[in-house]
Design a binder for these strands. Sequence first.
DNA 1: GCCCAGGTGACGG
DNA 2: CCGTCACATGGG
Length: 267
Amino acid sequence: MIERTLTQLSLAQIADSGQCFRLLRRGPGRFRLVAAGRVLDLVQKGSRVSFHCTEEEFQTVWVPYFDLCTDYGAFLRSIPSDDVFLTRAARFGEGVRILRQDPWEMLITFLISQQKQIPAIRSCVETLSRRYGTPIGDTGEYAFPGPEALSLCSLEELRSCALGYRAPYLYDAARSAGELSQWSGLPDQELFSRLTALSGVGPKVANCIMLFGFHRIAAFPRDVWINRVIDRYYGGNFPLARYDGFAGVIQQYLFYYARSGSKGEAE
DNA sequence: GCCCAGGTGACGG
DNA sequence: CCGTCACATGGG
């Protein structure tokens, strides 16, 4: 077991941040994450975080996954104090980080996400994993199924996973997007056009895949929550240029704060 | 039982 | 190019 004192990291906030759907609360301060074909149990008390894994796994898998080498304090300090709303949002969600998740999993997850609430997305992701993923040791958890596994599913089979009209999007993705990880080297603009060329991937979903799956932290997904914030607090025009190169981090602060305002998820 | 959701694609103007 | 609309299901 590895213990670290970490700043700007809140598992509770990340679990509610709408970027990761397989980080689940298992009790006060206790979490379980399924990612990278592994299960990781975590406990957080204040800034003390314990990772239930070996030192080697911590260094090679979870340090990059949680983006622990990036100083999020620098992002927080970059916010001008004249932006009262964002200052408050960032302080409120200062434990949010941009996880380095798998591009394929993000493609499928955010194809599912359209016109669904976060608990419903979670439920679909679990169904797909339990039905088509492989079990992880004796943990009772299942890895997210790869493109090979999903390409074996018929359209009707996918439909039965509560995917609704999105089922054909997944069906096509399993056949056309197997080489997704080879897109890692493309510049943002090129990556964006490749993603939006996939059926069911529009600008919002593409930006989510870029931000959460390819760690392109300049990507700024505009969803209903962000648009609401921009309309209400920024007169319809958010000063993106101020955050050149890391607007995605700012987007997460805004999203998390806006959403917690109307749900009772403050912590 | 309604209502609507981390949007997108197809259509008409 | 821009406004509308259907789309399938599960949570709130």
